[in-house]
Amino acid sequence: MNDIEDLTSIKILVDEFYTRVRLDGLLGPVFAEVIKDDWQPHLDKMYAFWNAALFGVPGFKGNPFAKHAPLPISDDHFNRWLELFTQTVDAHFTGPMADDAKNRANLMAVMFMSKLANMKGGPGKVIM
């Protein structure tokens, strides 16, 4: 196996990952509700996102957290997302960039879970 090397590698990763997401019992319905049957715009955005995250290539525009915040998702969803992402990377790639992609995905999942928890309040916290 090779490492994640370029946009072609990213497309393989993103396409395979979202194939797994679509088939997943927990994540599939959440994505299907938002994306319906028009996956290409989301895939194109994810190609640009990972190309920027891993290789610093300009082109990604957006606010990922703002898109996810209103969805009916919990830590279970992010943990499953991370599990599928890691499985996909490990099935296709090995090397420093593959490790970096898994690390960045983990950091994003932790950040999103933390921000969502803060938005929803918690013990001793009142959100008005």
Rank of each mutant, 00 (worst) to 15 (best):
L107E: 13
S9E: 11
D44T: 09
G124A: 14
D90W: 11
T86C: 04
F85Y: 04
L23M: 00
P123A: 11
A101V: 02
D3P: 10
F112W: 03
K67G: 00
G56R: 08
D37Q: 12
T94P: 11
D3E: 00
A105C: 02
R20D: 04
M46I: 05
F60I: 12
T94W: 01
P96R: 14
M113R: 04
P123R: 06
N118G: 13
I12F: 12
V14W: 11
P123N: 10
V110N: 13
I73T: 10
T86E: 05
V57Y: 02
D37T: 14
V126I: 13
G62M: 12
P58K: 09
N79E: 15
L84P: 11
K61Y: 11
K11P: 06
V126H: 15
K125W: 03
G121R: 12
L107H: 03
R80F: 00
K67A: 14
F60E: 07
F31K: 01
V14T: 08
D15W: 01
E33V: 02
K61C: 01
Q40E: 15
N79S: 13
L27C: 11
G95K: 02
N106R: 15
H42V: 14
I35K: 01
N51R: 09
M108A: 14
F31D: 01
F93M: 08
L107F: 06
Q87N: 13
A52I: 09
A91E: 15
L13V: 11
V21S: 08
V30R: 04
A91P: 04
M113W: 06
L54Y: 00
P64N: 10
D38I: 03
P64G: 07
L116N: 10
N79A: 08
A32F: 01
